[in-house]
Design a protein around this nucleic acid. Structure first.
Lengths: 169, 169
DNA sequence: CAATTATTGACAGCATACTTACAATATGGC
DNA sequence: GCCATATTGTAAGTATGCTGTCAATAATTG
């Protein structure tokens, strides 16, 4: 606690949860990019590619809900994945507004190849902690993200994709 | 654990530390922006403003080390703070390359006014957890960020600013 | 069935975050 | 003092992440 109420110190930044979350995110991205450099795939593109593989024929709006991504941003991500040949966009026969997303053979191959690097990256992020502490941190973070889901601008809606699978074509 | 080794599920995304860190960062920024909407200041701009108040006459390179920010990004952040009238850039008498950063009266006033909102935002981020769990999470996260400091592209170097105070003019 | 409302994808704009490159300037060794 | 090297700020380019808006199309409702 600072001695004077109007004298802000750097502790107001360094001990703030928001600062630590941003810092950890920076570190996580740096480690991911370092491990996956050879595969030319960002963390976001990886998540999108996995989601498209898991939910073939999903559309962009539902994809954004499945990986808790902003829809506007996702458009560019999809475009990059398409340019690189990892996914395809096909018009829907039922709904002329939407474009269905499918993984290509190259996309599936890339995902197989990159998994070890991704696993290494994820392990490296937590490596400095003792195993028990890693579990504690992940448990608390999982809880917190879940309980704060509605606070983010793009809440996670993992179920929407399943609804979709039951209707479109 | 998936039953087939080549069949990736969304768990590969949802349980990955990197995904949780990104998600938590999204949530933290959303909460900060919501609480501080009236003050027209982003989390990054807030950190920069605090650092400039704490280290008057710091230059951009040292500032980037003090708040663990990319130097290129920081150029734009500084420009926005200057445009809004919260800081000033003055040439250094000793080194013609650098521009020294100072907080304006308006910047100091803004910082005073915004602190309650910032505190509220930081509290809200952790609120869903029990008090004991908040402490545990912050302690582990502080450790992890510190131990992973060198892994990020812009490691935190809090001391550099102090070195600077002892030489420039 | 027609009119309102909602959804979808695209786009423009702002703000981080990082990479590389560059010009101006400092600093070091010689 | 001169030259190789390093530092500083800036800019261009890429990639998220968000806010809006818009047109096309669907779905709903009177």
């Amino acid at each position: 606690m600072p001695s004077k109420s109007d004298n802000v110190t750097m502790d107001a930044v360094y001990t703030a949860p928001g600062y630590l979350f941003r810092r950890m995110q920076q570190i996580a991205v740096a480690i991911f990019m370092e491990e996956c450099r050879a595969h030319d795939l960002t963390p976001v593109q990886f998540a999108a590619l996995v989601a498209i593989q898991t939910h073939p024929g999903i559309d962009a709006t539902r994809l954004s809900a499945v990986i808790a991504f902003d829809r506007s941003t996702l458009g560019n991500v999809i475009e990059r994945l398409e340019t690189k040949g990892y996914i395809e966009r096909k018009p829907s026969s039922g709904d002329k507004r939407i474009k269905l997303l499918y993984q290509t053979r190259a996309g599936a191959a890339l995902l197989r190849e990159i998994m070890p690097s991704v696993d290494r990256a994820q392990a490296r992020m937590l490596q400095p902690l003792k195993p028990a502490d890693r579990k504690t941190l992940m448990a608390l973070l999982t809880q917190l993200v879940d309980l704060n889901n509605e606070a983010s601008r793009v809440p996670l809606r993992a179920e929407d994709a399943l609804q979709h699978l039951g209707r479109s074509g």
